[in-house]
Design a binder for these strands. Structure first.
Lengths: 179, 179
DNA sequence: GGTTTATGTCAACAAGGCTGACATAAATTT
DNA sequence: AAATTTATGTCAGCCTTGTTGACATAAACC
C-alpha cells in the first residue's frame, strides 16, 4: 500500500480512504442489491397483511410453476431443509392455498398443487413484480429483453442452469452448453 | 369457506392446472430469484467461515463505498433499525474491520471507515461477485452493459433512485418526474 | 421380510429482522 | 442558562426462517 501518504487528516489509525479497488464492478454489485431489495418489496408488504412471509411466496411460486411437483423436488429447488419447508407448507395447506395429492405412481409422494385460492394469491403477488419488470424494460429496445434474460441466466450457478431452463419450459434458446 | 377438506385425494376440487396467467412475466421473475440467490452465495460461504453473515457484508460494502458516512446515513441506505445495525456493527468494530471517527462538524456523529483489514475483506467478498458479473456480461456486446445497468436501475423504487445514483457517483440528474 | 425412500414431526438453536424503553453527549432553541 | 432535540448506544424480548438431530410411518424395492 503506502499511497495515501500525502495529506492524512486523521492521525490515529489508517481509515482506508477510497474504494480504489483492483477491478471490482462496484456499481453493478450495488445495483443488483437495490434492485432485488425493491423487487421483493411489493409482495412482501402484501404477504405481511396475510401473516405470511417471503418463504410462503417462494413455495407458492414454484408450485404454481410446476403443478404437481413433489415435496422432494420442491426442496431441491428451494435448497432448504424439509423442516424449514414443513412449517410454511403446513400453514399454506391449513389456510387452503395449497393442496396435496397422493402420487399416482409412487403413493408415498405428495404432489403439490395450488387451490383456486392459492392461485389467486400467487397471481396477486406476482403482478407487481411483473409490472416492475415491464417498466424496467419499457425504455429498452425489444431485443434487449433477451440481453437481460441472458445476463440473469448467466448469473446462476452452472449446477442449477438446468433447473432454470426446465422451469422456463419454453426455451428453444440455443447456446446452452458452451462452457 | 366450504372447502374445509383441504387434503383430499380425489380431484373433486380443482387443483388449478397450469400457470395460465394474464400477463405475468414468470420467467424473469424466477430468473431474478435464482440469479440473486447465486450472486450472494460466494460471499455467504466466505462470511460463514468468519462467523459473519450477509448483514456484515452489506455494512462493509456501504462503508467502503462511502467512507466516512455516519450511522444515520448507513441506516438510511440499509433500511433497517439501529438495533439491528448495532449488533453487526459492534462485531465489525470489535474484530477490527470497521473504525469510527468522531464527526468533525457534529461531534455526536460517528463517521464510519473500514480499516485496512476491513477493506481487504470487503474486496475479497466483492471479487467473486464481480467475476460472476463479468462472466455474465462476457457473451454480450459491450454496449449491453448499459442495458443491464438501465434495467437494474429501473427496478429500484423511485424514492431510492437518488441513493443509487449518488452511490454510483456518476449520474448527474435525470427525468425524475414521470408518474 | 428386511431395507431404503418419501414424507412428517418434535425439539432445540442461530441469524437477523423487529419494537419499546432508556441513557448520554452534543447541538440547537428558547 | 435552561430546556429541548438529535445522534448514537444499549438492554430486553419477540418473530420469521433458516439450521441440525432424532424418530415415526407408509410405501416401494430387493
Amino acid at each position: 500500500m503506502a499511497d495515501t501518504s500525502a495529506r492524512r487528516i486523521n492521525p490515529d489509525e489508517e481509515p482506508a480512504r477510497a474504494p480504489e479497488a483492483p477491478e471490482i464492478d462496484w456499481d453493478l454489485i450495488e445495483l443488483f442489491f437495490f434492485a432485488y431489495r425493491d423487487f421483493t418489496s411489493d409482495p412482501d408488504h402484501m404477504l405481511d397483511e396475510l401473516g405470511f412471509g417471503r418463504a410462503h411466496h417462494r413455495v407458492m411460486h414454484f408450485i404454481n410453476r410446476r403443478p404437481g411437483l413433489t415435496v422432494a423436488e420442491l426442496l431441491d429447488v428451494l435448497q432448504i431443509t424439509k423442516q424449514s419447508l414443513a412449517r410454511v407448507l403446513k400453514q399454506l395447506i391449513d389456510t387452503g392455498h395449497v393442496m396435496q395429492v397422493q402420487g399416482p405412481r409412487d403413493r408415498r409422494q405428495r404432489e403439490l398443487h395450488l387451490t383456486t385460492k392459492g392461485r389467486a394469491l400467487a397471481l396477486a403477488l406476482a403482478a407487481p413484480q411483473s409490472r416492475r419488470i415491464g417498466r424496467a424494460l419499457a425504455d429498452l429496445k425489444p431485443e434487449d429483453r433477451s440481453t437481460v434474460e441472458h445476463f440473469l441466466k448467466e448469473m446462476v450457478n452452472r449446477e442449477f442452469r438446468q433447473q432454470v431452463d426446465n422451469l422456463g419450459q419454453h426455451e428453444p434458446e440455443s447456446a446452452e452448453e458452451k462452457r
